[in-house]
């Protein structure tokens, strides 16, 4: 089997020293804790395909179609290997051999879809198109970066993504509910946080003893573009005193998800006003990679403001 596109990465794959520095902030790895879900693991798969030690299979394809393209792996690689580019080429080759994994790519439910085209307009990766003949939305699985912006944008819920990474709509709802239920102390603040602004708290370990101070209320969404207005309202409905959306600086989002988040925040803010709830309870802030301290400070001061407002 000839992996035409993957072939050119052979020498780059040799440069990867397999140190695993890419693993820590990979949302897929954090969701499963299996080695195969690390960028290092998926690079190994690509390598195995090239050397013939791993045969293409539906399972291998599923793994290589899983990536949110947050780019943390590339940013943390000091050998300057760019895993996401390699995964994209692996996807294209696998597709050619008939292995189309679902992975993190979006699905369109034809029965619900009205082919309105809103998803097409919001997709910065140009992965979506409407086939005018059949009036169906087509998903380009090589281009789809799994940001979920279209899922949040679809007015009829026709776009969806596989569960298992903690960021599908159902999982986000469950995470909001769970974090509000387990939050001890006040004020009750829910924070939706992009993956690449390093989140506070432990990354790969757990603290389990009496009196342990865990960062509660932080929900990693991977991209802020995935947060639809309904999700924010759900948080308030379930008892949140305040909601913060921590996303990337405006021009730094691969998917323009932060622009969507900004629009939706403004919309929900107006709704809160109408409902007689102070719109200051909803806040959107921007953080760049590595601004963990700034994020910590912002969370602290937001919690202070919300505490003074009290519960709704």
């Amino acid at each position: 089997m000839e992996f035409k596109r993957l072939e050119k990465w052979g020498s780059e794959l040799n440069l990867c020293i397999r140190c695993g520095y890419c693993c820590e902030h990979c949302p897929l790895y954090r969701a499963s804790n299996w080695e195969i879900d690390t960028p290092r693991g998926r690079l190994l798969l690509a390598y195995g395909l090239l050397t013939g030690e791993v045969d293409p299979s539906p399972y291998v394809a599923e793994k290589l179609f899983e990536c949110f393209y947050c780019g943390n792996c590339s940013k943390s690689c000091s050998a300057k290997v760019t895993p996401t580019d390699i995964f994209t080429d692996a996807r294209a080759d696998l597709l050619e051999f008939g292995f189309a994994g679902q992975g993190t790519t979006v699905r369109n439910d034809e029965k619900l879809c009205m082919a309105c085209g809103r998803c097409v307009l919001t997709c910065k990766s140009e992965a979506l198109s409407v086939d005018m003949g059949s009036m169906r939305v087509l998903v380009d699985k090589v281009k789809c970066k799994g940001c979920g912006v279209c899922v949040a944008e679809c007015p009829v819920g026709a776009m969806s993504q596989k569960t298992g990474f903690g960021v599908s709509r159902e999982e986000l709802s469950a995470a909001v509910e769970n974090s509000l239920r387990t939050m001890n102390g006040s004020p009750k603040v829910v924070v939706f946080c992009c993956n690449w602004s390093m989140t506070p708290g432990l990354q790969l370990s757990r603290m389990e003893f009496k009196g342990a101070e865990n960062a509660s209320g932080i929900i990693v969404t991977v991209c802020s573009g995935r947060i639809d207005p309904g999700l924010i309202l759900e948080a308030f409905d379930q008892g949140a005193w305040g909601v913060m959306i921590a996303c990337c600086p405006l021009d730094e989002c691969e998917h323009d998800g932060n622009y969507r988040a900004k629009e939706r925040c403004a919309l929900v803010g107006r709704l809160l006003d109408v409902l007689g709830v102070q719109s200051e309870r909803l806040k959107l802030e921007h953080f760049a990679t590595g601004e963990a301290q700034k994020l910590k400070n912002a969370l602290k001061s937001f919690a202070g403001e919300i505490a003074s407002l009290g519960p709704i």
Binding site: R18, C19, E35, I36, L44, L45, G48, E53, V54, S57
Partner: peptide, 15 residues
């Protein structure tokens, strides 16, 4: 428990 060749392959190496 995992024993798919893909998993075994990625667990076959370190740095």
């Amino acid at each position: 428990v995992r024993d798919d060749i893909a998993d075994l392959y990625v667990y076959g190496s370190d740095a």
